[in-house]
Measured scan of single mutants.
Amino acid sequence: AFSSEQLARLKREFNENRYLTERRRQQLSSELGLNEAQIKIWFQNKRA
């Protein structure tokens, strides 16, 4: 489960760009304390 802070950040990123570069995913992973797979799957689900 994502914290409300993490979700807000993911939604902001998604609004700016529906697709993440690998580098951006790595940055978000480290900033949010999530693993890259969690972020990747969140974006895939959000696009679906």
Rank of each mutant, 00 (worst) to 15 (best):
A8E: 14
Y19G: 05
S30I: 14
L28D: 00
I41K: 11
R9L: 06
R18M: 10
N15L: 11
Q27L: 12
Q26R: 13
N15S: 13
E5M: 06
N45P: 02
E16N: 09
L28K: 00
Q6H: 06
S4A: 13
E13R: 02
T21N: 09
F2E: 02
F14R: 01
A1W: 13
Q26C: 07
L20Y: 02
A37F: 11
N17R: 07
L20T: 03
E31C: 04
Q6C: 07
R12S: 10
G33N: 10
E16W: 06
A48Q: 10
A37I: 13
R25C: 15
Y19F: 13
L28N: 00
E16F: 06
W42S: 02
N45Q: 13
I41Q: 15
R47L: 15
R9C: 06
L32T: 08
Q6M: 06
I41H: 13
Q44C: 10
W42A: 02
L32A: 01
N35M: 09
Q27F: 08
R18N: 11
F2N: 02
S3L: 04
A37K: 10
N35R: 08
Q44W: 08
Q44V: 07
Q26S: 09
L7E: 12
Q26I: 09
K40H: 15
F43L: 03
L10C: 03
N17A: 04
R9E: 06
L34K: 01
A8W: 05
K40C: 14
L7N: 05
Q44R: 10
R23H: 13
I39R: 00
N15A: 14
K40P: 01
A8P: 01
F2K: 02
L20F: 03
L20A: 04
E31W: 04
N45F: 08
K40V: 15
G33H: 06
N35K: 09
E13F: 04
R18G: 09
G33F: 04
E31Q: 06
R24N: 04
Q26F: 07
A8K: 09
R18C: 13
L32R: 00
L34M: 07
Q38L: 14
E13A: 12
F14G: 01
A37M: 14
K40G: 11
L7P: 00
N17V: 04
L32I: 08
Q38K: 06
G33M: 06
R23S: 14
E22C: 08
E22N: 11
R23M: 12
R12P: 01
N35T: 15
Q27S: 08
L7Q: 06
F43P: 02
R24V: 08
N45W: 13
Q44M: 08
L32D: 00
N17C: 14
T21V: 03
R25D: 02
S29A: 15
E31L: 06
A1N: 11
S4T: 12
K40Q: 15
S4C: 14
Q26V: 10
E31S: 04
E13M: 04
S3R: 04
